[in-house]
């Protein structure tokens, strides 16, 4: 029992829960809560995306598309057609999962940069449809979304949302960690090192890649639905190519193949623009410089690089590479 608690997996989850529980002490007003909620939502997407990028080794430059489909699906069904928000979210999530499964099969046959291109193309197509079909989506100006209500209880205000998103983030991380430790997760990691090698030992590469793709799409879609209800408004900016890039950056920044890295990446890159806002004209330049600098000096991402540093201080590096699971 004690050993289990001390394992990095449970220990990390516990640490995250403590951080979420204690953070409100530092959140002195609604604006800080708002940033925390945005961090949480981005973190959910990144934890999912990390399964695809970090573990299965497949890149996606189109995940904002899934996030956007989730957001717009909820917005259109709940706000335009008056569906109960939860039913709208569930339907949307299932639809996104089905879509990801359908396109995932052919797309994931592509390798490396071609996969990047194909996912980028998918994202662009989703973006074009959403901006053009303004009858349903409100076009580039966006669409207002009703608040999330569950059986008469309306979820409104930053503080309630903070706890809801915090809890969901814990669930997402828990799911991801379990998946990674499962046989399927080991198969994924085998894929990452060598796809052919994995096939040789009998792993159905295609099926596992599609599974990671669908799961990451579902995480993005759910976060998108939640973001839409929370903000009360969606615009196509959240579906755009640049948002996809932002999401990938968060994952890589925090540390690929590190679930907690994904959370840290989301936290840093969501709050950074807020901190840099003080630099006015230099904001954009500094943001780019921080991105470049971090990746140059910590090419494995913040969390694994720091974990390694910490480990090597404590003891001589042992065999193998310390992964920051």
């Amino acid at each position: 029992m004690l050993a289990r608690l001390a394992s990095p997996r449970t220990g990390g989850l516990l640490a995250l829960a403590v951080v979420i529980a204690l953070l409100p002490l530092a959140l002195t007003n609604k604006y800080f809560y708002d940033i925390a909620v945005l961090v949480g939502l981005n973190a959910i997407v990144c934890v999912g995306l990390n399964l695809l990028i970090g573990y299965a080794g497949q890149i996606s430059l189109g995940h904002a598309g899934f996030f956007g489909l989730g957001a717009y699906g909820s917005a259109i069904l709940a706000s335009r057609y008056g569906w109960p928000p939860l039913a709208a979210m569930l339907t949307t999530t299932l639809a996104v999962a089905a879509l990801a499964y359908l396109v995932g099969r052919p797309i994931l046959r592509l390798k490396g940069h071609y996969l990047a291109m194909a996912t980028l193309g998918l994202g662009v197509i989703i973006f074009m449809v959403i901006t053009t079909e303004d009858k349903y989506t409100g076009g580039p100006d966006g669409i207002a979304v009703v608040p999330l209500s569950i059986g008469g209880f309306v979820l409104q205000g930053e503080r309630i949302w903070y706890w809801v998103v915090g809890a969901l983030l814990l669930v997402a991380v828990w799911l991801a960690l379990n998946l990674i430790e499962s046989p399927a997760g080991r198969a994924l990691r085998a894929l990452h090192s060598s796809e052919v090698g994995a096939e040789v030992v009998g792993i159905n590469a295609a099926e596992h890649k599609v599974m990671a793709f669908v799961i990451s799409a579902v995480f993005a879609s759910v976060a998108g639905s939640l973001a839409a209800h929370y903000s009360g408004f969606v615009t196509p900016g959240k579906v755009a190519f640049l948002h996809s890039i932002e999401l990938v950056t968060m994952v890589v920044f925090g540390g690929m193949a590190s679930t907690f890295g994904a959370v840290v990446g989301a936290a840093v890159l969501t709050t950074l623009p807020q901190l840099l806002a003080a630099f006015e004209d230099y904001e954009m330049m500094l943001f780019g410089a921080v991105m470049m600098g971090t990746m140059i000096f910590m090419p494995r991402g913040v969390v694994p690089s720091l974990a390694r540093l910490f480990q090597s201080r404590r003891q001589q590096p042992s065999s193998g590479e310390g992964s920051g699971t």
């Binding site: 990028i53 890149i59 990047a116 890039i245 990938v248 950056t249 890589v252 920044f253 690929m256 230099y282 904001e283 954009m284 330049m285 500094l286 943001f287 780019g288 410089a289 921080v290 991105m291 470049m292 600098g293 990746m295 140059i296 090419p299 494995r300």
Partner: peptide, 16 residues
């Protein structure tokens, strides 16, 4: 992927 992110950082930097 890390290299891609570096060049994206560079593009934001140059635009800024």
């Amino acid at each position: 992927v890390t290299l891609i992110i570096i060049t994206i950082g560079a593009s934001i930097f140059l635009r800024g």
